[in-house]
């Protein structure tokens, strides 16, 4: 069977859930080969990739690959595309993942599809465009299909693979070393699941009123094992870090359950959460546009409703 390359997303040596999703998808279309870019490859990582069906793991663990912006990862993938002639390359459709996909497409003269929410026979991708208004099937017509798939598009299913390790040396070009990362600043997220990967997201907006009051959003999130998100109004006000912004210029999330408290539902916010399976809204204004996409909504003051909900959840556990 032909190989399908899956670029691994990892933090602190741990494989992210989206990679397990991509491996699951790749298995249905060919033979998954994981590509590990950057330092930190470990037995634990190998175990995870094997558990979800990676037959091979290409390991390129030089620090240079992550110390320069995007270009090195695209170069690594391009060299593998040239030498292994894979049937396709799958990448997570995150802001950086899309940039890697874009450079790779130029390098390999291949078509690229971003924000896929499904992938089928012949690498036909499902996309949901115009804020969820139109569903599209698209496919690559030239070169090796490069598909960026959104996190949470498919459920990861285990199935053992060999995960045979193969070291890859890439001699990075000067052009790939043009933009150097000189410092990394991490905004703490605590023990909560990562926003784009979480099954449940609880988001707060301007209606939360202050940074301190975000504690009620966090408590509700913790009672559900959820991630916390925020609207732009809340991140602009400095109530919550920008890394947690949901929307057009923040993260795109597609959880099983999205709870929006004190968020009006501007188009730019909806662009980042409209594909959530179930949407619950708490807002004191019955005219707020977010109610248009709510499966269940409460018209009320979040300062009352949210703590009561948190308490109820605790009671029923």
């Amino acid at each position: 069977m032909t190989e399908i390359l899956v670029l691994v997303e990892h933090v602190d040596g741990d494989v992210k859930k989206v990679t397990l999703e991509l491996l699951t998808l790749a298995r249905s279309l060919g033979e998954p080969a994981a590509v590990w870019a950057g330092p930190g490859y470990s037995e634990v990582a190998k175990g995870r990739l094997a558990e979800f069906g990676a037959e091979k793991v290409y390991v390129a663990d030089s620090a240079d690959i992550v110390d320069y912006v995007v270009a090195p990862k695209a170069e690594l993938l391009a060299s593998l595309v040239a030498s292994r002639a894979p049937a396709a390359v799958l990448i997570a459709s995150t802001a950086e993942g899309k940039e890697i996909a874009g450079r790779l497409a130029v390098k390999t003269d291949s078509g690229v599809i971003t924000d896929a929410v499904g992938l089928g026979e012949g690498f036909v991708a499902d996309q949901s465009i115009f804020g969820g208004g139109v569903n599209v099937h698209s496919r690559v017509s030239k070169g090796t299909p490069i598909v960026a798939v959104r996190p949470n598009s498919t459920a990861p299913v285990p199935s053992t693979g060999a995960a045979a390790e193969e070291k890859v040396d890439v001699a990075l070009s000067d052009a790939a070393r043009a933009a150097k990362v000189v410092e990394r600043v991490k905004q703490e997220k605590g023990a909560r699941p990562e926003l784009t990967e979480a099954a449940i997201v609880v988001s707060g907006g301007r209606g939360v009123g202050s940074g301190e009051n975000f504690a009620i959003i966090e408590k509700l999130a913790d009672s559900l094992g959820a991630a916390v998100g925020a609207s732009r109004a809340a991140t602009d006000a400095g109530w919550y870090p920008h890394a947690f912004q949901v929307g057009q210029t923040g993260k795109t999330v597609s959880p099983q359950l999205y709870i929006a408290a004190g968020i009006s539902g501007a188009i730019q916010h909806r662009a980042g959460m409209q594909t959530s399976k179930t949407i619950v809204v708490i807002n004191k204004d019955p005219e707020a546009p977010i109610f248009e996409i709510a499966d269940f909504g409460i018209v009320g003051d979040l300062n009352q409703v949210v703590p009561q909900l948190t308490e109820e959840i605790a009671k029923r556990k």
């Binding site: 036909v124 569903n135 698209s138 019955p286 996409i293 909504g297 409460i298 009320g300 409703v305 109820e312």
Partner: peptide, 27 residues
């Protein structure tokens, strides 16, 4: 390099239930 094979207008989201808080909104 890529093409749209076909497309369809997404079915509208089914209208949800919206209720006014009467002191038991959380419940």
């Amino acid at each position: 390099w890529s093409e749209v094979a076909d497309f369809a207008v997404a079915p509208p989201r089914a209208a949800g239930t919206v209720v006014k808080d009467e002191g038991d909104g959380g419940v």
